[in-house]
Design a protein around this nucleic acid. Structure first.
Lengths: 214, 214, 214, 214
DNA sequence: TATGAATGAGGATTCATTCAT
DNA sequence: GATGAATGAATCCTCATTCAT
């Protein structure tokens, strides 16, 4: 699966801290929030609990964030940075489409695994809060489009089954990836990581009709 | 996608009504509940609202159900009966694996489309309530296993790619189906129904390595 | 302790059953009520539970009783009949005051023991419901007066300490009896029955200044 | 009656207030609670009413207490401090057993009279709530034991009737005290205070067989 | 009479957010 | 900035009692 490198825009909460101390406090809140969200889920997470976990009084939360939703958005933004940034370059220099797809898939599954608990919460929130549903949708769309472009290219080069609707196929295969990651890393479906990777890769190759290089 | 025909067990709520009138009331509650859940989602649905929608006093709800969860389970059970029962036989007599898969996929997508709003709520609830997460998991497992068996059979007959792990493949393709149905019928992703069906079918065929009959 | 033989007035509930069947039903309710009250206490006893225990539909209760309070009154009335009626005659022919007191005390404690669970509920209800507080007060007053009369008689005969206020003493010693019965038979204070009887008797004798017959 | 001087342990509710303002608020709640409990009884007391009486929003109650039971325990604790602390020393220097008993009895009855309304509620609650039943039992036991010890001492010195079971006698006479206090100060039984005190004293003396000093 | 379904008032509790210090 | 106390809206659920059959 080919995913996107996003520009991570700065979205200030209520206040951009001007002091070092302020910045530290804000960061502590975000870290604490991730911990609490992962432990309790979004609905059961308490703002007061986040503050306490960050070692401060409950009211202090609102110095930096307007709501639980806002800090959750920040937590997710941090995760996304981590998921997208550092690993992209590994794919540089890969030309063979199968290898490229395999590399992208591997990367995606590893990322998901690293952040499984938070991904679970994100999944929860996306089904509750319109704002996050939209966010997820937009993020997904970026991936879909990138994959669709790739598929279209492969079709034009005669490497992939030309009968497939590239856009729908991109969505279908991408969805398959995220759902399987959820099943395995969140719901704990017992599938060996290697088997997972290999099977998903093979489904991609077969589905697209790619000839594997020997 | 090949799914399962379940025996729909009777799960009495708090009380099995002994009168016709009671049965009518209970049924009215379930109908009203579906309406309210579809309109407001699970979290925002109010028990009092269900009763009122059913045209009765708020306390009457508790004559038949112990909680919002319980009546939701009943609503889902009703939907499942509707989804599974009447359409199964249409597949009888189909031998060609591609046709069989295509028929199952079509049926699944149609069912999903018919019940999209409730499926959305079910998705929401599954991410909130352990009980329903488990329920969804069990239901899905039935489908996974049926599909896995089918794939294994095709592999043994030499019709499907023998390199694929049948169990994981079954999950991956089934997950793809449900996720795409969600995207299209719940999130409103704009994809023509025919395109959707054809593309998903083709992905199944390609992925499994089936030769299409001309 | 000398207690009173009451006339047990007939207090019909809502309806005096005219059929044998009606009488049986009513009686079944009272029996069931006692069972439920003893098991759950007054506050936690449910009218529906009484009906069900009596083997009938919940609404039937109100054919015979107007409220939980009313049936409780009936249950208590039954207990009182049992406590007062059959044992009185045993005291006939006793002349020695000490023996008379001892006999009355023994009788009281045995009665209390037989009905301890219900006495506990009665205690509970007396502290909750004005009506029953009054009832208890009236019943107690009868006993107080009888004992006061006895004490006065003994004082006039020169057998008892003439300095004691007969009325207050009667109340004090009677209260001591009921409280000790409660402690031992309801709260389970571990005191051997014989020790209890003997000690209480001796306190009566000493307090009144009676000479024991050899 | 000889009663006990307890160490009054600090039992924090949900939160120990960290501010003066917080301490004031908490105290206001306890004061208001006593007022409401005395006026309405435990069962009819409403948490919201306590808050309102204390002049604050209903939710504020839960900043300091988890439940009606908890604040009631605090109210009782306050009363107990008041009942036990300041008056003890008055008994210092009294040697004559009769005078000692008389002093203790007087003190007890005065205390009870001062707190009669709350004692009534405590009586109510003890018959409803296991927790408070136990509490009452433990408190009573302390008094019982102290009195039992006193009686035993008097018996050993030859001052009191050696035939009496000290432990049972202590319970009986103590129970008589509390019950009479209840009758007079709570139920309003019309007995002059002096008569009450003198009669009860005389019963104690007679019962124990003490020689009164002239 | 008996049944069992329907009623609906009533209060505890939570917790995101605001505010006084 | 930080603190922690105060706010109060909002919903669930029980169960005695009534009522239609």
């Amino acid at each position: 699966m080919v995913d996107a490198q996003q520009d991570v825009e700065e979205q200030p909460g209520r206040v951009v801290p001007k002091t070092k101390r302020g910045a530290r406090t804000r960061a502590a809140l975000v870290t604490a929030a991730r911990e609490v969200f992962e432990r309790d889920g979004f609905l059961d997470a308490r703002v007061a609990d986040i503050s306490k976990t960050a070692g401060m009084a409950s009211g202090s939360f609102y110095t930096y964030f307007d709501s639980k939703e806002e800090i959750f958005a920040e937590v997710v933004r941090r995760m996304r940075e981590e998921m997208l940034h550092p690993h992209i370059r590994e794919r540089a220099g890969i030309c063979d489409p199968c290898e490229l797809i395999a590399a992208a898939n591997l990367e995606y599954l590893k990322s998901y695994r690293r952040n499984a608990r938070l991904m679970a919460v994100l999944e929860q929130v996306s089904n509750i809060d319109e704002q996050f549903r939209t966010l997820r949708y937009e993020r997904a769309t970026v991936i879909f489009e990138r994959n669709a472009t790739m598929i279209r290219t492969l079709q034009e080069t005669g490497l992939a089954d030309a009968e497939l609707n590239a856009w729908v196929t991109a969505q279908a295969l991408s969805s398959m990836m995220s759902r399987m990651a959820y099943l395995v890393f969140v719901e704990g479906q017992k599938i060996a990581f290697d088997t997972l990777v290999e099977t998903l890769n093979r489904i991609w190759f077969n589905a697209l009709g790619l000839e594997r290089t020997p």
